[in-house]
Design a protein around this nucleic acid. Structure first.
Lengths: 343, 343
DNA sequence: AAAAAAAATACAAACGTTTGTATTATTGTT
DNA sequence: AACAATAATACAAACGTTTGTATTTTTTTT
């Protein structure tokens, strides 16, 4: 006690048993080339000496770290955490660990993080590009260097060497808005997110498509594209929006759960009745909507499954014998509308 | 294109410039032992060849990975995510990355995760033990093997070699309950969490202490220790609790934000007015409380700062020349009561 | 211009594994 | 009992760095 013990290594076991390091290594691997009785001895000695393999040395030797790098735009978004949980679960079941980084919604940080991944710490990368990511050269470069990659959420179709996991945002929002229309709603407001994100563009398209199909006039005034990248500001932005409206909407389609909740909160404050006077639909369905009063109707997005699927695709790539004949696959997961009290 | 490029290594640069590997290594390190003009050449060649250092080889050679292992009981708890953000921020500023794992509230998984950390992948560990963690031998063992460790949240005082980061839970809840008492509340309900967690024990103690100090009778019936480990069940547990009450509380002190929200939701459903008839206080203050109507008064816990502090303590340990004369430090962070509409 | 001092670089071992090939020990065959 | 075939093990290189020591080159001193 009191001294830091030097780590036990293969050599120590080998010396004690008067065998070679190679034999010890193979014994612990249960390689049939070593005699059962020797393996036995090695196992016992390893245990009694408290041997713990050195992962770094293994990685250097094998060229694999069994770590998946995950890069998300922000931590404080339950959607991303949920995706990470999905990745983590699938990865662990396949003997991989995950290393999560946040690009903090910045293209610059995204590049820096990828560079750090490129230093050989990870075997592959799962990534949701930031909204700022216009130029995807850094992604294509990395892929060309042989780094397996899977994109999800805010994908970039120009990245041709990576698999993609997405939902059909346009269709999902079309369905949601159609649902409102069928409830007799005619003045439907749209609360979207940053215009640069593909998911928000698509949700907007779905919204417009639904109104168009049912010949409902589109009021520019009822459309908001939130620009806030942080929770504190979203609040204010939405409050301002509703405060300055001259038309009163009878429904709101919000592109995230949080926007939906903030919308309900604002409406409740101004004395509106939900859903009688105004119906509200959110997007995501990550638990928050169930807590609020009234509970929030949501487009349920399979976040956890997106993570699992992304991990599955990546690990498949890692197991491909020749990474060069990888064929890009795009997985589109199903959403469904979860009706609650707000509609 | 089309072929996976072999990674450029020091040797390739050395060969091209007709110098030794050692010189290249030192040049890139800006070691003064190499002539400025040589360093220049090395830098340029490295850049033009697209050299990217191999982190694994570095780690093997240096014995440091610059990775901090973080083990939390669950992902779907904003508190832990927030702590991780804090750790991440401090760590990145000091050139460390973090590897997050979840013990999924299981002692067994906690041990397994620590074993995987022990394989040399991380330089140190930041950990919130699970509620099941009674026996802390695995922690002390790891520390004795020389693994720096910091505990936070659900700490175990028996772990003598690790630094601790906590808040004064007892005092915080005492203050919160005292606040309710001073508002004239006399029938205060307590919604706690799993009894095994030290934080919940302490919050309970604070609750009792406040009632005792002000001579308020303690109604066993108004006390609930939630046992649920997953969101879906908490909901039901709290609903049941309030449904079967024979005394009507005039205030509720809830040990988490989520309990507070669920409480408000339940009360609102049964037609209670908040805060007029029942006041509610939550614990944590991680954003949810601000969204709800009415907004939730909370004990604000400095989660992000806890993470930063934990990272700071760990990195200090890592920089100690002799880890054996490490003196255990306990950091107790301040909380404050954030008044909102629910009181 | 030779010797000494200083600067720049090269050599080689080390970090702890894995793995292909060579060697030795054991078994089976006649 | 000698030999071949097989089983078991040992040797050594490789993974890509870092770093202490040795060597070479350059500069300074006289």
């Amino acid at each position: 006690m009191g001294f830091k013990k030097r780590r036990v290594k293969l050599e120590d076991i080998a010396r004690k048993l008067n065998v070679s390091i190679a034999t010890v290594s193979r014994a612990l691997d249960e390689n049939p080339r070593v005699k059962p009785s020797t393996r036995e001895k090695v196992f016992n000695t390893a245990k009694s000496m408290g041997y713990m393999p050195n992962q770094i040395a293994k990685s250097l030797s094998s060229g694999k770290t069994n770590i998946i790098g995950v890069l998300i735009p922000r931590y404080d978004e339950p959607f991303f955490i949920e995706v990470c949980r999905g990745i983590d679960q699938y990865a662990r079941n396949h003997n991989y660990k995950i290393l999560i980084s946040s690009s903090r919604n910045s293209y610059q940080f995204e590049k820096e993080n990828l560079i750090s991944f490129e230093r050989g710490l990870v075997d592959g990368i799962i990534l949701s590009p930031t909204h700022e990511t216009e130029n995807v050269a850094h992604l294509n470069d990395l892929i060309n260097k042989g780094m397996p990659m899977v994109l999800f959420d805010n994908i970039r179709e120009q990245v041709s060497g990576a698999d993609h996991v997405i939902i059909d945002d346009k269709r999902a929002s079309f369905k949601a808005v159609e649902f409102l229309i069928k409830k007799g709603k005619k003045k439907i407001a749209f609360i979207g997110g940053i215009k640069e994100k593909k998911v928000f563009q698509d949700r907007y398209k779905g919204f417009i498509a639904a109104l168009t199909k049912y010949n409902i006039p589109i009021h520019k005034e009822l459309i908001l594209h939130c620009n806030s990248l942080h929770r504190e500001f979203e609040d204010k932005e939405i409050l301002d929006f509703f405060r300055h409206l001259s038309i009163t909407p009878d429904a709101v389609f919000a592109c995230t759960d949080n926007y939906g909740l903030l919308t309900m909160k604002t409406l409740l404050k101004t004395g509106k009745k939900i859903p009688e006077e105004v119906a509200v639909i959110g997007f995501g369905d990550l638990g928050l909507g169930e807590v609020f009063v009234p509970t929030l109707t949501c487009v349920s997005q399979p976040s956890f499954e997106m993570g699992q699927k992304a991990a599955e695709l990546l690990i498949n790539q890692l197991n491909e014998p020749d990474e060069m004949d990888h064929k890009k696959t795009i997985v589109r997961l199903e959403t469904r509308l979860t009706e609650r009290e707000s509609t």
